[in-house]
Design a protein around this nucleic acid. Structure first.
Lengths: 201, 201, 201, 201
DNA sequence: AATGAATGAGTCTTCATTCAT
DNA sequence: AATGAATGAAGACTCATTCAT
């Protein structure tokens, strides 16, 4: 039965890498342990990826790319800016919950250093932000949301979302993440409503 | 009048380390370059710190500890939950702006991996969160803020704050961070006000 | 009329190997690139040769063997030791010129290290030397050449020949090698003439 | 008595490297074995040399530079082109004989591949050639030597010299190299004398 | 306390070779 | 015979840490 089925090795390596990168970070993960966990020889990694760095890039593209697609689709499946923001938050949390591995990567690797990694991380988070921003702009145009700096607000909103996931991961995923969806949506939605803070002097 | 006090070297090492850790990350910084930048011998670092890891811990404690103190003082200098939230956000951004190095550490190192680092990072962000949370709890008790999961809301608020700083750092500090303070405060304050999102079905 | 004879692949591999070994040296050439250039799969090389080392041995045998044959024939086509030395030098340079690849191998690989290579290289250069030596011995017997240590003189002569080729290769074959033939022959021939150096004290 | 005397480590490394490079060639020598033979840790090599390549360059410079100096001095200590050629050949063989290690490097590494090595090797052999060439030019100017292409003749002469050494090394230094000096000098000197080959048709 | 040369374990990466198809 | 994906041993180089001075 020879040297295994063809085609699933790249996938196995990406999965193993995702697991370790998420858990221990890029620098604390050795290519050897990735290889071992993936059930391949050390050198095999270098058949599919030219370097360790290219591997983490692939991990990003794989996981976040997958998220983006589903978020985009999800958002378009409902109408109205408010519903869309709710959908975005809820779906985002669901995706994270169904794949804690990718959640960890999403959180921990987002801000590493080497240039290439940086680039991809930025691209990924920009993709997230873009989706949010377009919903905001739409809501603003329709008069549902107040006037705002959509870029800045989108990233604040993204920050609130991220921290929601981070708390959950830090708790070792000890509760259903979905239950935070309402609070998250409420929090961000009020901030977008057509009025200024009240009770303020 | 020897200007060099005792402790001078420890301080110099911490400053040099902060600079490099912020710029290039923990793993891409060597102890040798820290030593060189600090103007001490490679071995000297190990007189003040038992390991590289302890050094980054010290950097965290130093910088974030300093922040905490000033945030705490700043918050207590005004009255009322709403004003305090405003003060917190504004002062936080000011502190970051006046010390971009620490801003970078705050952002990029917060989510590394090795256990010890994790612990400290968590401790630091918890400190931040604690300040926020106590203001929230107070506001809730006084009926100024709506009922909420203060822990979760505090961290979302912290997330919005973080992303505001991140955007600024990513832009190479190309604009005055302070100008984002109002939008940030407004955003988080509405989310806390005593009402539910409107326009929602 | 299938143009591909059996043995075609072996030949292609040897040619590709010769090219790379000559250009980049044994150690800087990978079996994969040889395979690619030869238009065969990586594993195919190991059907024809048991190892990379055996491959370079084959390259030597192939090219230098070919030279030897032609040199031998060429030498025998003229009469008299002096004419033969001239023929040897001229023909040798012609062969090198018509095949710069083999010239490079001849020069650069002659003195590698691993035992087996050493052995073959020695064998090859010995073959060269043998031809020269036999002409020398003949000339000495016939009284045309002076008494000498034919082995030593043969190798000095070979050295002069080699350096003539090396200079040419080092110049990127920028001039016709043949034009050095007369000087080379003159140089070595005087050294063989029946007299002692004059003008010497 | 601590970590040995300072200053002799670089030398020890160079000596160990010279030994192995000469015996087994650059590519078949590992930095670890050099370190071990030099009695230092693997990493120590990289305190003194930035790379393995820089190490072999240093080996070249060290040994051949030393030769050049002594050859130059030796040549200048006698008068007249003929005597100088004799001196050059004799002294050269003596130097090789007194240091077989360097003889091996001189022979085996002279024609490796990587660019930097090539460069240095070329520089070294050029230095040798330059000394020879200047003596030839002088002799030609004084009418002691015939008209010739000094560059080409110098390198042929160098080739004869090299092969004399190579034969000796190949014989495992089994005889006194010095005894070949006369034959070598005679051979090259006749080739330089003011006449054309005789007995030629 | 301070130095900085030395250490050596640890890592990524290469590449000759194998073997199921 | 031919393929080429997979192997895994080996090697150059890095860098946190030590310790004699």
């Amino acid at each position: 039965m020879a040297r295994k089925r063809v085609g699933n090795k790249r996938e196995k390596i990406i999965n193993a890498a995702a697991k370790f990168f998420g858990e221990k970070g890029y620098h604390n993960t050795t290519t050897s342990e990735i290889a071992e966990a993936a059930g391949v020889a050390a050198g095999t990694i270098y058949i599919y990826f030219t370097s360790k760095e290219e591997l983490i890039v692939a991990v990003f593209e794989e996981f976040l790319g997958r998220h983006m697609e589903r978020l985009q689709t999800g958002v378009e499946s409902v109408d109205g800016p408010i519903a869309r923001i709710r959908r975005l938050m809820t779906l985002g949390l669901e995706l994270m919950e169904s794949n804690p591995e990718s959640a960890k990567i999403f959180l921990s690797q987002l801000r590493q250093s080497t240039t290439m990694i940086k680039t991809v991380a930025k691209r990924s988070s920009r993709a997230y932000n873009d989706i949010i921003e377009s919903v905001l702009a739409d809501g603003m145009a329709k008069g549902v949301f107040r006037q705002m700096d959509t870029t800045h607000v989108a990233s604040m909103l993204f920050g609130a979302y991220q921290m929601t996931v981070l708390e959950w991961v830090a708790s070792d995923c000890s509760y259903p993440l979905a239950e935070k969806a309402k609070e998250l949506s409420d929090f961000v939605l009020v901030g977008l409503a057509c009025e200024t803070p009240k009770g303020d002097q």
